[in-house]
Amino acid sequence: MSESRRDFLASAGKLLLLTGPAALAFDFVVSGRAQVAPGYSAREHWWGMLIDIEVCIGCGKCVKACKEENGVPEGPYFRTWVERYHVAGGVSEHPDVDSPNGGLDGFRERYRAGDGAKSFFVPKLCNHCATSPCVQVCPVGATFESPDGVVLVDKDYCLGCRYCVQACPYGCRFIDPRTNTVDKCSLCYHRITKGLTTACCEVCPTGARQLVDLKDPKDPVHEFLRTHKVQVLKPQLATGSKAYYNGLDGSVR
């Protein structure tokens, strides 16, 4: 940006007498950086999540921690949840799937060992798609992809039209009955912008969930992605999902 344009913007900003968050954001216009928290520059990150089905034990701690950390309402509302798959004969178009209370209280044993089926847990959350179908359909820009690759909600701007809920192929969105606006996984944006990991990753005892920064060359995710066969959910929908699953079975929807 040229000096004169910067001067112009700075003085225009003073003229407009912006206050509060607007003024804060305006500083970043001038600096040309998308910055949201002190010392954090959104342009330097590109967030995603790595989920290792091979080591998930279905304890449900992630679901509980998410509800706690993000104040997710009780009942059938989940920013993250865990599903249990039971695939008879090893291959099936119709796996037996359950997720009692989103897996919040863990899973009681339902099956017998040696019944000839395979069984495993699949944690789910917002896939933070790079070309999100939900963002595409929002009529007003109340949900968006942040510069650091997180799909967020502007809950003070959301109409509550529910079009995005319809557009999400993964069932990751719900209407918060307290605010009548949409809610979803924010990848603990309030945490990751402070250098912390997400609540679900913080409590995951086996490392089945890992927050990854695809722009950080030191992130071990790059080595992991090089050495493992990973897949995203519903790849045929080309949503640009950034939730990478290791050991994903073909029966998982």
Binding site: V137, C161, R162, T179, N180
Partner: peptide, 21 residues
């Protein structure tokens, strides 16, 4: 049907061009 009918006018103020709605 809207959760916030009072915000409906935003659709005219900041219409998202990729949104059919």
């Amino acid at each position: 049907h809207l959760g916030h009918p009072e915000r409906a006018f935003e659709m005219y103020l900041t219409p998202h061009t990729t949104s059919a709605m």
